[in-house]
């Protein structure tokens, strides 16, 4: 257990020293603040009074469908493909392969949760400062929405890690993931049957938690998320295990 904990910290530290991670964390704070400033103090849109909560959720949408997936792709590429290229993937350390694999996946997921919570904090603080219609009663539903969004993001992390292990070049991995992600966003318009097969479909599932959710639907989607995580994780580990040190 201690090795897992120690190595998770180690992997998080590796990610945090990267410039791109710092950039993501900075944008997590800046994007909500700037949006709120624009919405409330720009004459261009004074004719419309959009519900404050609505804007908060649009900000969440922006992060869970664009920025966080992008961060996941970069992090997964760096921790797996990049280290494979540099030859630092398997260090001389008393750690089993499964532990190493697990800690890397946990590290990316934890950082995603951190980004989500930081964004929530930035949204709430800027909303309290700039919005006239800030309502404290909205806090539980919004924090719930941000935390619930974490689960499909973990699945996407496992998916990205799996893809990162299939390719041997960082450039190919990151560009391939972005192209594939865009493809996943648009393919349902052509083939509606594929919609619920893709992990990207579930990224905005928090919306359905906000309204009255049906029990049946919870079971179905949670089953999907758990089983697809297990699938991506185990395929990823299978690939990871076969790699030569």
């Amino acid at each position: 257990m201690n090795t897992i904990k120690a190595n998770t910290f180690n992997e998080i530290q590796k990610l945090l020293t990267k410039k791109v991670t710092k950039l993501f964390l900075l944008s997590t704070i800046l994007v909500p603040v700037l949006t709120k400033l624009l919405v409330n103090h720009l004459f261009l849109i004074d004719w419309v009074a959009l519900p404050t909560e609505n804007i908060n959720f649009t900000l969440l949408d922006l992060f869970i469908t664009i920025l966080i997936p992008l961060f996941i792709f970069i992090a997964a590429t760096d921790l797996f493909t990049g280290e494979g290229e540099r030859g630092t993937l398997f260090q001389v350390r008393p750690i089993r392969r499964i532990e190493l694999f697990l800690t890397k996946v946990i590290a990316i997921s934890v950082l995603c949760l951190f980004i989500l919570l930081l964004e929530w904090l930035a949204v709430m603080i800027s909303s309290a400062v700039f919005d006239k219609a800030f309502d404290i009663a909205d806090i539980p539903s919004s924090v719930g929405a941000f935390i619930v969004s974490w689960f499909p993001i973990i699945v996407l992390t496992a998916f990205a890690v799996m893809l990162a292990l299939f390719v041997h070049s960082s450039v190919l991995a990151i560009s391939g993931m972005i192209v594939l992600y865009l493809f996943m966003m648009f393919i349902p318009y052509v083939l509606p049957g594929s919609l619920y097969l893709l992990p990207s479909t579930y990224l905005d599932w928090y919306m359905q938690w906000l309204s009255d959710v049906s029990f049946r639907w919870i079971i179905q989607t949670v089953t999907y998320l758990c089983s697809s995580f297990a699938l991506f994780f185990s395929i990823g580990y299978y690939m990871f295990n076969r790699k030569e040190a």
Partner: peptide
């Protein structure tokens, strides 16, 4: 594990689509 989770995943996709 890969086989079982893949089957469950396809099953859940099928049941979601059949709603």
């Amino acid at each position: 594990v890969i086989g079982i989770s893949g089957t469950i995943m396809l099953g859940s996709v099928y049941s979601i689509s059949a709603n």
